[in-house]
Nucleic acid binder design. Structure first.
Length: 825
DNA sequence: AGCACGCCGACT
DNA sequence: GTCGGCGTGCTC
């Protein structure tokens, strides 16, 4: 008997069922099931039928479970290829992520269980039809009677024959059928379960009578619902600390109703004009040739392009991609989310037209699925997108480009908490393809690796057309203050803006903080308005006249009198982009001033409209956050002002000098991109800090050399790995007790496996720098560990925190484990 | 997530 | 005793 064994991942987001389950593939299915296909399997004591995905097929089974059989196979082709399956398994191990989350990253967007296969009938001539066997004929007839198109599941139902998938494949190879995937997202929006009391009770007394004293838990829930009305099921379970079974039995009794409510989402669209090919400069050509030379000699290689801002890196990517197309290979181009919207995408779509798939966060599930399907079915050759585009399901991948590789958005903060650079390396290894990463300010880690020879370093030192990098002037704001200037503009910046306006040139003002005032405080007693769910001061937003929490979104009206001491001396401190806008408009009443940050670009198309106005020179002064720092290319911008270079410098994170250096360099790069010289004015209270000084000189190498020494001395990446474990929950006392308990268990475990002496450092548990977010108290343990012991350490962490082998009661406690996180805040 | 098993308290 | 609620543990 020909039988095989399949490892199946079942989607039910509970950590205890997140592992491969082995099922028997009976002889009648053995030829139909492939890795990457979805199957129906019996699961649990009640053998309920669930959908799962086959990740491995083996000839033998040596385990001791009595195996159940796969009921049926859903797909006629694998949803994902073998290399993406391997990649997911690799990710779940590398980043300690649940399998199901790692697989969701590579599976079609949306709910993979809802993917349908459509079968389309081509024209069939009688002479061909007559060569078919009976079963094949009946398939053709069924589809014909269904207007030439049918969904696979429905066809199988009508055929009522195990071999349907096989027949389809035969007919497909004869060119009689074609198949195509579809997902029903436009009519299947996202839902969440809500609970409410069935409206039969007028009073508590009536409730008590109906339920009876015995079911005190039910009574508690009912009373809770009586007060609250409708509430999400998850929240209810949290609030009353009850299990689902209690709630379900109440539903059975008809006391409560559980309903699905839709959660909203929205799409956007854009128009794009052609972008013609540019002649490469000598430097660009050298860089391009070196890469192509390696590719042509079939040496799979990794390159780091260190190119100053405005050196024309995008044109190099474009031409590399073109070469790939000529070789019949596909390319993935990754850009940070923020610069994704118009400019880079316009260039790719402008040059390659419908051979480009664009993936970004503003697509709806349906749109995203369409892009995914185009890639999967080989209809496009290039995928341009944010970090998740690294999973684009190409089958003959030749090149991955990562633009602005230093950007923090390349590290995911959700499961799987992957680092896009590492994933890209892995994919390139799988396909033998080329990896090109590039930045004007490479991350210390990447540059270190290029020095060690893991990446081949390519330099672009000149801007195109030999334009000069803009002159950077540092203004010591302490001196401004001493000379009596309390304004947010130094004298020098003010005069420069004034002059720029006179010359009809454009100005960009950068401040990495949105809102109007960053905190509101009482001058009498020092009280600061804080979010009542997060340990963070609230930012005042002028336009809406509200105080907002930038972590949880809570908005309240600003107080007129101090809630503590009742004084009316409430003052607004700190500057945000909104206040900069207000001041700028007041000081330059004749200038057209626009602000670009999260608050002004949340509406559909508003980002594009601001950029277009900027391009058409309808805006004199553009004020913005991070958004203006990346990739924007306006020829008429000659002045860039950095309002406060210190905001990113004083954060308690080892990467803050690096961030500051990168930010200043990137923002400065926005000036002088046209025929006119650019100027940058940096305002700071720390003018002597090395990251500001060296950014002024555009001296990346000196910055790197200094920074890498510090990293070595204090043992930070790239010399070690940092693992952050955050233990959080709503009950502070429990969080503290549990984090101490887990810390002890972890230490004991590490002692047992003789690892404790090899782990560089374990600190904690201490309150996380952001001690409270969205009502959760957060305690943190930070572990440093060299590469060679990392795997052992991860196993220990998995054992203690994820599998919870020590059976610690973890009700109300959650963990967030991040390996080499972006920041340790 | 869903299902069964077994403990335990309240009522006959 | 016995009925029913509620927590616990397992799912190839």
């Amino acid at each position: 008997m020909n039988k095989k064994f399949a490892q199946v991942i079942i989607d039910n987001k509970s950590s205890s069922t997140d592992k491969p389950y082995t099922y028997l593939i009976d002889s009648d299915l053995v030829e139909l099931v492939e890795e990457g296909m979805r199957v129906l399997v019996p699961f649990g004591l009640g053998n309920r039928v669930v959908k799962g995905i086959v990740i491995k097929i083996e000839e033998n089974y040596f385990g001791s479970h009595k195996l159940k059989k796969i009921i049926d196979v859903i797909d006629d082709k694998p949803l994902i290829s073998k290399d993406l399956i391997d990649l997911s398994i690799w990710m779940s191990e590398k980043y300690l992520s649940p399998y199901i989350d790692a697989f969701k990253a590579v599976l079609p967007p949306g709910d993979f269980k809802e993917v349908k296969t459509n079968i389309l009938l081509e024209e069939v001539h009688d002479d061909i039809y007559n060569t078919l066997d009976t079963l094949e004929k009946s398939v053709v007839t069924i589809i014909h009677n269904n207007k030439g198109k049918i969904e696979l599941g429905e066809l199988k139902e009508q055929m009522n024959n195990r071999l349907t998938n096989k027949i389809i494949r035969q007919l497909e190879s004869k060119g009689i059928l074609t198949t195509s995937m579809e997902i029903q997202t436009s009519i299947e929006p996202k839902y969440e379960k809500y609970v409410y009391l069935k409206n039969r009770f007028n009073s508590r007394e009536e409730l008590n009578q109906k339920i009876g004293k015995r079911s005190y838990k039910q009574l508690e829930i009912a009373e809770f619902l009586f007060d609250k009305g409708e509430i999400p099921l998850k929240e209810l379970m949290m609030e009353v600390n009850s299990s689902i079974s209690t709630i379900k039995s109440m539903e059975k009794k008809g006391l409560i109703q559980i309903v699905n409510r839709e959660i909203f989402r929205s799409p956007i669209k854009e128009d794009i004009s052609p972008y013609k090919k540019h002649e490469l400069t000598l430097e660009q050509r050298n860089c391009f040739d070196t890469i192509m030379d390696h590719i042509n000699r079939n040496q799979s290689s990794k390159f780091l392009i260190h190119g100053v801002t405005g050196s024309g890196k995008t044109e190099i990517y474009l031409q590399l991609v073109e070469e790939m197309i000529n070789k019949g290979k596909e390319s993935i181009v990754l850009v940070p989310e923020i610069s994704l919207t118009p400019q880079t995408v316009q260039r790719f779509v402008g040059r390659f037209g419908d051979r480009v798939a664009v993936l970004h966060s503003k697509l709806s599930y349906g749109e995203r699925f369409d892009q995914w399907r185009k890639i999967r079915e080989g209809k496009v050759k290039i995928a341009v997108g944010a970090r998740s585009a690294v999973f684009a399901p190409f089958s003959n991948l030749g090149l991955i480009v990562i633009d602005e590789e230093h950007e923090s958005t390349y590290k995911s903060s959700m499961n799987p908490k992957y680092d896009t650079l590492q994933v890209a390396e892995k994919r390139c290894d799988q396909f033998g393809s080329t990896l090109v990463i590039a930045s004007a300010t490479p991350s210390v880690e990447s540059y270190y690796r290029s020095i060690k020879g893991e990446y081949k370093l390519l330099n672009l030192k000149k801007r195109i057309m030999n334009r000069e990098l803009p002159f950077v002037k540092i203004i010591d704001m302490r001196e401004e203050l001493n000379s009596g200037n309390k304004s947010i503009f130094s004298k020098e910046l003010y005069e420069a803006i004034e002059e720029n306006l006179k010359d009809n040139k454009q100005t960009i003002l950068f401040l990495n903080r949105r809102g109007h005032s960053t905190f509101v405080s009482c001058r009498q007693c020092g009280y600061v308005v804080k979010c009542n769910k997060c340990s963070i001061s609230m930012t005042y937003h002028l336009k809406e006249n509200r105080l907002k929490c930038h972590y949880c979104g809570l908005a309240i009206s600003p107080p007129n009198i101090c809630p503590v001491c009742k004084s009316k001396y409430i003052k607004y401190f700190g500057i945000g982009t909104e206040k900069v806008e207000e001041f700028t408009k007041r000081l330059f009443p004749n200038a057209v001033v626009k602000r670009m940050d999260l608050d002004t670009t949340s509406k559909k198309g508003s980002y594009e409209s601001i950029l277009n106005n900027m391009k058409e020179e309808k805006i004199d002064i553009l004020i913005g956050t991070q958004m203006v720092a990346k990739g924007l290319d306006f020829k008429n911008v000659t002045l860039v002002g950095i309002i406060a270079a210190d905001t990113s410098l004083n954060l308690p994170d080892f990467r803050s000098p690096e961030r500051t250096f990168q930010l200043i360099t990137q923002v400065a790069g926005r000036a002088g991109r046209g025929d006119f010289e650019g100027k940058v004015i940096v305002q700071t209270y720390n003018p002597e800090h090395y990251s500001i000084q060296l950014a002024q000189e555009y001296n990346y190498l000196a910055f790197y050399n200094k920074e890498v020494l510090i990293r070595k001395e204090f043992n930070y990446p790239p010399f070690t790995n940092i693992i952050s474990i955050i233990i959080y929950g709503e009950d502070v006392k429990r969080v503290i007790i549990k984090s101490k308990e887990f810390y002890k268990i972890l230490i004991n475990n590490l002692k047992q496996i003789n690892l404790i002496d090899f782990v560089d450092n374990i600190i904690g548990p201490f309150p996380a720098p952001l001690e409270r977010i969205k009502n959760n108290y957060r305690y943190q343990i930070i572990i440093k560990c060299k590469n060679e012991y990392l795997d052992k350490l991860k196993t220990a962490i998995e054992w203690v925190f994820i599998y919870n082998r020590y059976k610690v009661d973890v009700t109300g406690i959650k963990f967030n484990i991040d390996i080499n996180p972006n920041s340790i805040l």
